[in-house]
Design a protein around this nucleic acid. Structure first.
Lengths: 203, 203
DNA sequence: TGTTATGTACACCGCTCTGTGTGCTTACAG
DNA sequence: CTGTAAGCACACAGAGCGGTGTACATAACA
């Protein structure tokens, strides 16, 4: 129901099937999981004939991979580009996830597909590595003594919060953010960076 | 091939079907995932007729729940009972997982089943809460100022390492252990506990 | 106008899945 | 030896799955 109803030319059906399919994927794969969402149901939700879907994607596997590739915008990468925040604040902002996000789709895909060679699994791996790299970059800007290590640590915290949120059905990101604050303060020398003028994290 | 071959009376087939089924579950659910393991395949591996399987379990859902319930022994709970270790060492020992363990089956089940109401999902939730509680207990023995918080933090690290190991296909537990060491040292006052005589973790 | 790319409708294939029905065999206890 | 509980073999139902074939409709552009 979000942007399912306007193709590139404003028509409700007709041209723009690919975008409607991907939009429906984002909704259904998250709500029901990948394996529990059939192509029939997905096509019905996208108001697209099954035949058309298979003209845009060679199979469900390719659709799933493309679904993951289209995910990133503004979920995390937006955080790193916020120039209104100091590097340290940007690192912490990565833990301010909207509670609407049920589970990191990359972890979900890797677990559901259960095949490390699946295109979507490979993309999930690359994405996670890219996030860790961006965290490391930001850690470097914040003056961390070992930015790569801090980036990897923060990435692990994000994934832990995502997994735990899913299993426990309760938001685990505040806990992760508290750990992150402690790690960041430990990793940045007292005189480094440009934003050490904030108080010690409450932990 | 582990203990598939000896029922309660030592017979290879015949009496003891239930245990063979659960044993095969442990193997196949971990190797292939729950959804990708059919009852036919599972019964074949257990050398049990399908009819017998459905006389022991009302359905696959119940089997999956029982599979999870039978898992805990010695995977983590063994760590907490090791009296040869100091409390602090026990907390860290939780991160020394054998590399044979592909992914925490509780996270895997929660993601694969995708239904928080599923009996197995509920058990996974309870189990994760129990582990956090035991970590908190041990943290209290180690003299932590806020044991509940430390327990929750360490539990999150374990789950993060498990999830990240799965997605990246690379062991993330060393990273988690390093964070854990830092958190533990931060959370235990300098004079508390009985084992502060160890060197600073290399981080 | 006509051509072409795009999308539709719908039946259909082969496969796998969970779960049953039925009748037969075996192991063990009394 | 015999009764009974446990297990076995095997076919089958009913549904859902991913994916295809065919014939038709429409939108965009020349």
């Amino acid at each position: 129901m979000t942007e399912l109803d306007k193709g590139p030319t404003g028509r409700r059906r007709g041209r723009g099937a690919r975008e409607r399919i991907l939009s429906a994927s984002r909704q259904l794969f998250r709500e029901q999981g990948i394996n529990r969402t059939g192509m029939d149901q997905l096509c019905a939700a996208a108001q697209v004939s099954k035949r058309t879907a298979y003209q845009h994607f060679t199979g469900k596997d390719e659709l799933v991979a493309e679904y993951l590739r289209r995910f990133d915008p503004s979920i995390l990468s937006g955080v790193f580009d916020r120039t209104d925040l100091t590097p340290r604040e940007r690192l912490l902002a990565a833990f301010d996830i909207p509670p609407t996000t049920p589970l990191c789709p990359y972890i979900a895909a890797a677990v559901e597909l259960h095949d490390p060679q699946h295109p979507a699994s490979q993309y999930a791996r690359h994405y996670k590595e890219a996030v860790a790299a961006r965290l490391a970059d930001t850690a470097r800007q914040a003056g961390a003594t070992d930015p790569e290590q801090l980036g990897e640590q923060l990435a692990l915290l994000i994934d832990g919060a995502a997994a735990r949120t899913r299993v426990l059905n309760a938001d685990a990101f505040p806990t992760a953010a508290a750990i992150a604050a402690a790690l960041i303060d430990n990793a940045i020398p007292a005189t480094a960076g440009d934003d050490r003028q904030r108080e010690q994290a409450p932990n």
